[in-house]
Write a protein that binds this DNA or RNA. Structure first.
Lengths: 155, 155
DNA sequence: CCAACGCTCATACTTTAGGGTGATTTTATA
DNA sequence: TATAAAATCACCCTAAAGTATGAGCGTTGG
């Protein structure tokens, strides 16, 4: 059923084409095409079918989808106690380690200090921070911290 | 000249149409259209001009754009009103510029971005940030931001 | 069992941050 | 007006941050 609707325009085109051909056949029988009028006849067909083609193309051409992101602000009342915004947190899909690193970043620690605090190598912290920035769609730790605080992901 | 380019497709269409009509005329003269073959002849013309029409339409019609709006939630922590801790602020003895730079740092901007925002050179921002760190007794911008927020010096 | 994921770490590289020093120009104020 | 503080900018250098890529390992769920 869906297919029928989908190909509606093609079907209409087919019907129209058939109708036109019948009409021509009828005209041919009726007036027996005069040799001199052949040019006119061919021209008319050409014009009609060009128009038909244009119509078909306009109907069939699928519109280009243009996605526009609309930012919707959601204000969170955070009076006094810190309440973790679980929704935003899960939306970011941060792993445990990444969140841990983010928290330490927010405390002003350098990557080296974070590495020492967590008994990891500096490279590991860099990897975590990179992935973390990607997920949070930021470029710098300062941005990450700012965003995280605004989202109430960290205290 | 611009018009010529703009109407390029229409011109090409005209030329193609003329060429086709000439071809048909030639075929007509060459083989003298047989009555039985007329249907085939007309059918061919119909197909060709339909194709031509489709091509024309695709070339001429500006692409349809379907705009889809996607909502993106932005959580904003609205901690009521910000009350600046004037006492702590004056104790740090930060200059106007330094405080300004500190605020922009807290917003996650890089030194380069801060420089552009304030119409200053990168070096100037570095100087300000250095002095700022000294006065705040910190080593990194992240620490400075953390401390400033804890002291309620900035929002 | 294996595919996917998270965690760990490495190497190599580029960019940004920060420190030190010095210089010029405003600006406020004693 | 002299002077100190603030503001501006430059240059050089080191440290830290960040990017890209790849690899090994352990857990987990279909």
């Amino acid at each position: 059923m869906n297919r029928l609707i989908k190909n509606k325009h093609i079907i209409i085109y087919g019907i129209l084409l058939a109708a036109l051909l019948f009409l021509m056949k009828w005209l041919e029988l009726r007036f027996i095409v005069i040799d001199n009028a052949l040019d006119l006849y061919v021209g008319a067909i050409a014009v009609i079918f060009t128009a038909l083609g244009i119509w078909l193309a306009l109907k069939l051409s699928r519109p280009k989808v243009n996605t526009v992101q609309v930012e919707k602000n959601i204000y969170i009342n955070n009076t006094g106690n810190f309440i973790c915004n679980e929704a935003a947190l899960s939306q970011l899909n941060l792993s445990r380690r990444e969140l841990e690193v983010l928290q330490l970043m927010a405390d002003g620690l350098s990557n080296q200090e974070i590495a020492e605090r967590l008994f990891l190598s500096l490279n590991t912290i860099k990897t975590h921070s990179s992935k973390l920035f990607e997920k949070m769609e930021v470029e710098r730790r300062t941005q990450a911290v700012d965003k995280a605080k605004k989202l109430s992901i960290i205290a």
